[in-house]
Nucleic acid binder design. Sequence first.
DNA 1: GTTTTTTGTGCAAACGTTTGTATTTTTGTA
DNA 2: TACAAAAATACAAACGTTTGCACAAAAAAC
Lengths: 340, 340
Amino acid sequence: MVKKRVTITDIALEMGITPSTVSRALAGNQRVRVDTRERVLNVAAKMGYQPNVLASSLRSGRSDTIGMVVPRINRHFFSHVISGVEAVLNPAGYNLLISQTHERQEHEIKAFSTLLRNRVAGIIVSHSVETQTFEHFRQIIDEEISLVQFDRVTEQVPGPRIVNDNFLGALRSTQHLIKNGCRRIAHFAGALHVNVYEQRLDGYRYALEQAGIDVDPALIVENCIVQEAGMEAVENVIVPQQVDGIFAASDLSALGAIRTLKELNIAIPEKVKISGFANEPFAEMIDPTLTSVEQNAFEMGNQAARSMIESLGKEDPVSEEIHIPVRLIQRRSSVLNNSI
Amino acid sequence: MVKKRVTITDIALEMGITPSTVSRALAGNQRVRVDTRERVLNVAAKMGYQPNVLASSLRSGRSDTIGMVVPRINRHFFSHVISGVEAVLNPAGYNLLISQTHERQEHEIKAFSTLLRNRVAGIIVSHSVETQTFEHFRQIIDEEISLVQFDRVTEQVPGPRIVNDNFLGALRSTQHLIKNGCRRIAHFAGALHVNVYEQRLDGYRYALEQAGIDVDPALIVENCIVQEAGMEAVENVIVPQQVDGIFAASDLSALGAIRTLKELNIAIPEKVKISGFANEPFAEMIDPTLTSVEQNAFEMGNQAARSMIESLGKEDPVSEEIHIPVRLIQRRSSVLNNSI
DNA sequence: GTTTTTTGTGCAAACGTTTGTATTTTTGTA
DNA sequence: TACAAAAATACAAACGTTTGCACAAAAAAC
């Protein structure tokens, strides 16, 4: 099904010179005369030459393809990170090979394998929620392929980690609820072995402690990040425990809570104040609008790409952690008066 | 930066056999004895062998990488199509190389070039909004690379086209407004050189004609697909023209209209009924909830991938058009009583 | 027991580049 | 004009596979 394509040998034959000269001319090598370079470029263009990246990478041992492994491409946050990575990598001459894990470690392992087989120069990854062991990173590290982690990361693997300031976001968010009069504040947490949810819980705890409020374990709802979980939590925790504030680690569970509270005619924000996390697009569209912590996914992608490019130039990976600032966006779900 | 990796030659040396036998064993070739195959597999696993796709593709002339070109990765619709493509392609052993055009034809051309250089087996593409000429598809066609178009497509390029049933969606949507009592129905259209928007306009027109309602050009607002455009259109068209129904080609412009109408205290759906297109996640979250035409992006991706795989097996491309069914979802923005 | 067929391996070339080294051409200098 | 130095080009090997063909050993047929 594939036609034969024009190669540098074809160009060389056409011009009566050698493939090596053509190669050097195309590469902009200094050792080829200016006018021959221009002639080569002309003939190449005329013949519709497209360099064969496979052959080039094979011979040179260099690759301009970066692999990216994310839980789900079609999640708002991740698709924006991807976009941010692409925005930096493409102009720099790199391509992106993308795999999704669907939150399965098994798929993560397969994805790594595929990327290694494709001889990517580096891998940008955010762990699947299942991922708690890291032996499958061994091969990447052993083969000295640059590795950049973002969002869901671990210190057990070397290389740069690009993360949101989850702790600060949670801290500010909880402080905001306290400042607005909440005293019994619940937390909808995620899976606590994942760094982002652990840190959000820490921020929540710290805010309470600073304010002299006891942390009540009964008010911490684990694995509460989807809408349905938020709904159930209202029945099981919010109402029985007489909660007056909710800091949700996810906008979706916050949404679930809002919906159920509205059904029960419990006034938001009068009776219960709510803030979420991620500032999903719907946060400003629902009624009441949802206070949330904005995380700059696009910028996170930019930074991940920049760290990757930097890593590619270095011998040994630097295991720094880079924080992308977050911002609390106050909306009606947590503020009484109409001043916002 | 890249360590030397284990090759089939290393395996062959280790076992005292020949690289060709190793190659055949790994490929599952019949001509190699069963027990040697198993021994090879064992040694390969033990040595941590990862086949070099570059070398393999270079030699065999075959590629298991598919390129995908979309306007924007981080748009809800496209990210779901990508996900759908991936869901079919990955299990079939293909990889996805993704580029975004940011709606620029110039980037589309560059993306094609990149994919060709990477010797992809096929390209799945949805045009940028700028794309009105198609010479840059020439090279893809000439090199006999499989091409599948989706959503934004043209008949000027051969190969399968996977599209939503835009006409039917628009027809049903407009009929729905008519059935609910609207007589002066405006249409927020997109760029009419793009097939999807053209077809939505056609569906709108056809519905009016069938109902014996004159099509008033003053009620057709072109290039009205972002929120701001919807807002402006309320001031410029909806109010002055005493419109009682809006069929928007985009949920975003519908949202803009809703917001401005609410500001002007014009009751929805009592005074103006509205329906959008795409069924974005926010459609069921805003107030009032937005009637919209659901398009199955994930399924569209599945189908695009299936068509691609099919194309790869064929000599000549079949230029069929495959329609993904759409569904009108009735919500409060267009229906008076509470029965929905 | 010899010949034919089958089965399993090995050999070597090829895919399209890049790149170290050798060779030729050009340039500069005496 | 001759000669060395510098510049430009050519040669050939290599990257890691795949694959047609040759070949040997084993199995089957006579």
